[in-house]
Simulated assay, not measured.
Amino acid sequence: MTQRVELATVRDRLAVDGLITDYAVAVDDGDWEAYRGLFTPRGRADYRSAGGIEGEVRTVAAWLAESLRVFPMRQHLIVNRRVRFGIWEQDTGDTAEVQADYVNPMATAGPAPDFVCGGRYAFAALRTDDGWRLSGVVVREKWRRLPEPRTAPVVN
């Protein structure tokens, strides 16, 4: 690899990493316009493993906006990002696949989470004239912790 190719790869890796961070922030902040803007025009998302839907990004963004309304506090922690660049139309580096683990605490009210889940994302990204965009997101929820049932205090 030449130094120029290595520098381009580092720039692409940082751009794709930033795209994944922007995804988490958009979902956590409920910024559905920003969320839609992270995808290609034909982008799709699949949240079925977490009890959601699969479809084109506009439909999924509307579903997320409605479903997550009950959780005003959300914080996606996306870690262990594995980025692989692919080949599109005989040019290297125009596609990327990212696998990343996540932990997502959410709360209906107050600082303590009512619900915590975790799993792995599979992101597909495409280099466009506007920069890197998501062409697909698949959520693979692995675990979920619901709040413990509250018992009435014992009064002596």
Rank of each mutant, 00 (worst) to 15 (best):
R4K: 12
R4M: 09
R4Y: 07
V5Y: 08
E6H: 10
E6D: 12
E6Q: 08
E6L: 14
A8S: 10
T9I: 03
V10Q: 12
R13Q: 02
L14E: 14
V16N: 05
V16D: 06
L19D: 06
L19S: 08
D22I: 07
Y23C: 08
V25F: 08
V27S: 09
D31W: 14
D31C: 10
Y35W: 09
Y35K: 08
R36M: 03
G37V: 00
G37Q: 05
G37W: 09
L38R: 04
F39Q: 04
P41Y: 01
P41T: 00
R42T: 15
G43N: 03
G43R: 02
R44G: 10
A50I: 01
A50L: 13
I53Q: 01
I53E: 08
V57T: 12
R58T: 15
V60Q: 00
A62D: 11
W63D: 02
A65Y: 13
A65V: 06
E66C: 09
E66K: 09
E66I: 13
E66V: 11
L68S: 00
L68C: 00
V70T: 15
F71P: 09
P72N: 01
M73A: 01
R74H: 03
Q75V: 00
I78K: 05
R81V: 10
R81T: 04
R81N: 01
R82C: 13
F85S: 12
F85N: 14
W88K: 10
Q90W: 04
Q90M: 10
D91I: 15
T92S: 08
G93W: 02
D94T: 13
T95R: 01
T95N: 01
A96Y: 06
E97S: 14
V98C: 05
V98T: 09
Q99I: 15
A100Y: 04
D101S: 13
D101H: 13
Y102C: 00
T108F: 11
A109E: 15
P113M: 14
P113W: 10
C117F: 15
G118L: 11
R120N: 08
L126F: 05
L126G: 07
R127V: 05
T128E: 00
D129H: 12
D129K: 02
D129V: 08
G131T: 07
R133W: 11
S135P: 07
V138P: 06
V138S: 10
V139A: 13
R140E: 14
E141Q: 13
K142G: 07
L146S: 13
L146P: 00
E148W: 08
E148R: 00
R150K: 05
T151F: 12
A152G: 07
A152F: 05
V154S: 06
V154Y: 02
N156W: 12
